[in-house]
Write a protein that binds this DNA or RNA. Structure first.
Length: 746
DNA sequence: GCCATTTCCCTTTTT
DNA sequence: GGGAAATGGC
């Protein structure tokens, strides 16, 4: 009896094919984590490979942790030296050792999204960029997109070929990058890109890691972007022993730069690839799997595969339509209570939604129904003000070159150093090409800041005092000292209501316990190590299956997880699939949403409940949407409507299937429609629109919000929506869904 | 320099 | 509808 007996034939092949490039196409619930962990065990136990030579890459810390635990339990203690970690933590580890070769200090800071925004704001001010026209966020996302593709500012500049806007973005990118370097800081993308740069520039370092990592495995391979692919390619090039595991049907991170070609073209990038398909699903019942398959079937250009399960039948899928989002939340809460009375635990249930904002209504009802829950995602714990403040103190102690952190806390709590003094200190620093903190130390020399100079001295003393203690004090002690010496709690009490203060105190306590558990879990705890861990965690990493709470999260966060009972809330066109994907004019955006739907459905083991609301308040506007087109793609025989026990009336599915398609030109949603509907105006307008037919026809000139003006070339009336083909004057030919494109006749 | 009010932007998803 | 940032008065 061996540990491999429980594997099926393809799984075994995946485990035992250790040499050369291997592509494992692993459908949802096909036991891919088992395969990777057993493969590592096989390498160590049977092939005599030193665990030191193994690298296994995941996307989330949670996946890494789980994999580490499973490997350890399979191999005992022989697996210690293997690297089982996320892309980001592996790269940070490499950079901590070698980033000085790129001109950074090894104690670099890691900037999160908020930090990036602050830097960008500064950059725009310096370059006199009008942030009304070029939004910081938009600039950052363009830069991030460039980084995903390994493009440098110069590359961007050249590819602009004279286009003023693009050249401007390239300039901003260059300045942004310089500022980061000046602060001795890197952003999330840099973590990957600088590692690639290091490998490409320094053959000594590359050799070292190529020699070390003779066996490389990559999980969730379909989500890798160009930079990550390059990284893996560089590392694996020498040994050729690269095993990637992925599922093109679960690729849902195109917006983050994931390049689906990495998986579709893997066999072109590497020679003599062994391709192994894992198609047996061990997770869901037949009904759930059939529904998932019938949805994903509508996508084009997939790798051919078909999931099957030995678990026949199972209960039908439920689909409930409610009047509004509140009733939907109530219906879900009521359904959960019924499950609990049947013997399910709260932790067996998860509610999945498309956008974080949807959690609010659910949260309210769950409180009302006394359902214990936990929301994952949304505002990151480490993005909270009080946490960021304290971390900024620690970062300043750790890396005084991090101007951003110093500036954040110089006047928090208030020290009477306002924006004017702050700007003057900054100016002084620029002139002398020194850091903000160094300028602060020399505050007496700055003539223009007057009294503020004296106020800066105690701050500098505080930081220096803390720095002197980093060797002997624990991270916990440092945090406590920051709080006590700054009077941080008093500061909170002066500014916030008692409830908010209490909440912030609890968060600070949680930070302290995180520091303690960090110090217990690491061999050589250090301040920089703690800051690094803190920068790279995602909320979902803290999901603990043993907590008896219902999990609420986005569909994206749910990838890789499974639950006996899954609710998919907000199944409405415009919400899921998102409005953006419907109006972009790019069918592949819709296909990504469909994959997301597939991911959601395949999370469910036993019971899947879909729901939609006729009316929903989004951003203070009431929207009225038809049910999601994805629900149409599930054959009726798999669907039932559950009995409604709450106050909301669940409609029969036929009610919804007979909804009329929206006509071209008809406005999808506007806040005034709610009032108009109440006064009856709306109804008349809608009738008028329907009687009058499409608001435009073939040959008409129309205007689109994003693409400008164009001519309608074709209108297809097939199906429930209208597919309009428009030839735009500047943007080219686009196909789009009439109900969402908001085309107006001109 | 500080505080209150107004304005803005947001919401697609995140390591 | 809500939270953060900008603005303007003191």
């Amino acid at each position: 009896m061996s540990i491999y007996d429980r594997l099926n034939e393809p799984q075994r092949k995946a485990v035992f094919t250790t040499e050369g490039p291997v592509l494992i196409l692993a459908g949802a619930g096909s036991g891919k984590t088992s395969v990777i962990t057993h493969r590592i065990a096989h390498l160590i136990d049977d092939c005599g490979i030193n665990s030191y030579n193994i690298l296994a890459i995941t996307f989330t810390n949670k996946a890494a942790k789980e994999m580490r635990e499973r490997v350890d339990s399979l191999v005992g203690y022989g697996a210690d030296a293997a690297w089982i970690m996320t892309f980001h933590s592996a790269c940070v580890r490499i950079l901590r050792r070698y980033i000085d070769r790129l001109g950074y200090g090894n104690n670099f800071s890691i900037y999160d999204t908020d930090d990036q925004k602050s830097v960008m704001k500064d950059v725009c001010k310096r370059l006199e960029v009008d942030t009304k026209i070029y939004k910081e966020k938009a600039l950052l996302s363009q830069i991030s997109a460039a980084k995903d593709e390994l493009l440098k500012p110069d590359d961007l500049y050249q590819s602009a070929s004279g286009n003023y806007n693009k050249m401007r973005v390239a300039e901003v990118y260059r300045e942004y990058q310089e500022q980061l370097k000046k602060n001795n800081a890197v952003d999330f993308d840099d973590i990957i890109n600088l590692t690639v740069e290091l490998f490409e520039k320094d053959s000594e370092v590359l050799d070292y890691y190529q020699e070390r990592f003779k066996y490389i495995m990559v999980d969730e391979y379909q989500d890798t972007n160009t930079a990550q692919f390059r990284l893996i390619y560089l590392l694996a090039r020498k040994s050729g022993n690269l095993c990637v595991v992925g599922d093109d049907d679960q690729s849902i991170y195109k917006f983050r730069g994931a390049n689906i070609m990495n998986i579709l073209n893997f066999e072109q990038y590497f020679k003599d690839v062994s391709v192994i398909k894992l198609e047996q699903n061990y997770r869901s019942t037949q009904n759930i799997l059939d529904a998932a398959n019938s949805v994903i079937r509508n996508n084009t250009g997939r790798k051919d595969k078909s999931l099957w399960t030995a678990a026949v039948g199972g209960s039908k899928i439920f689909f409930n339509i409610y009047e509004n989002g509140y009733q939907e939340a109530e219906g879900i809460a009521a359904d959960i209570n019924e499950r609990i009375s049947e013997g399910f635990g709260y932790n067996d249930c998860a509610v999945l939604y498309r956008t974080n904002a949807q959690s609010r209504a659910l949260e309210e009802r769950f409180l009302q129904y006394n359902i214990p829950y936990r929301i994952y995602g949304g505002i990151n714990f480490y993005a909270r003000k009080e946490i960021k403040d304290i971390l900024a103190y620690l970062k300043t102690v750790d890396n005084a070159g991090d101007d951003l952190s110093v500036r954040r806390i110089l006047n928090v709590p208030k020290r009477g150093i306002g924006t004017t003094s702050m700007d003057r200190i900054q100016g002084y620093a620029y002139d002398r090409e020194i850091s903000f903190y160094e300028a602060l130390k020399a505050a007496k020399e700055i003539p223009s800041i007057g009294k503020a100079a004296a106020k800066a001295a105690p701050f500098v003393e505080l930081i220096e005092g803390l720095r002197a203690k980093t060797g002997e004090s624990s991270v916990k002690e440092l945090i406590v000292e920051v709080i006590e010496r700054t009077g941080y709690i008093d500061y909170l009490e002066d500014n916030d209501s008692p409830e908010v203060v209490e909440e912030r105190r609890q968060n600070i306590d949680e930070l302290i316990s995180k520091a303690v558990s960090y110090e217990q879990s690491v061999d050589e705890p250090a301040l920089s190590g703690f800051l690094e861990e803190v920068a790279l965690v995602a909320d979902i990493d803290s999901l603990d299956e043993n907590n008896n709470t219902v999990s609420l999260m986005t569909l994206h966060s749910a990838k890789g997880l499974e639950f006996p009972v899954v609710y998919m809330a907000g199944m409405e066109d415009g919400l899921f699939p998102s409005y953006m994907s419907l109006s972009s004019g790019d069918i592949s955006d819709l296909e990504e949403e469909r994959r997301l739907c597939y991911v959601g459905i395949t999370r469910a083991k036993e019971r899947l409940v879909l729901s939609a609301a006729r009316m929903r308040m989004i951003r203070g506007e009431t929207q009225m949407n038809r049910a999601s087109r994805f629900t149409d793609e599930i054959p009726k025989e798999y669907i039932a409507s559950s009995v409604q026990s709450g106050s909301g009336r669940a409609l029969r599915k036929d009610d919804y299937f007979s909804l009329p398609p929206r006509k071209p030109g008809q406005i999808a949603f506007k806040s005034f429609q709610k009032e108009a509907a109440l006064s009856g105006i709306f109804d008349k307008k809608e009738l008028a629109a329907e009687a009058g037919g499409p608001g435009y026809g073939e040959g008409d000139r129309v205007k689109h919000m994003k693409f400008g003006e164009g001519t309608v070339r074709d209108i297809k009336t097939g199906g429930r929506d209208y597919e309009v083909t428009v030839e735009f004057d500047t943007a080219g030919v686009k196909k789009m869904f009439a109900s969402f494109a908001k085309l107006t006749k001109i």
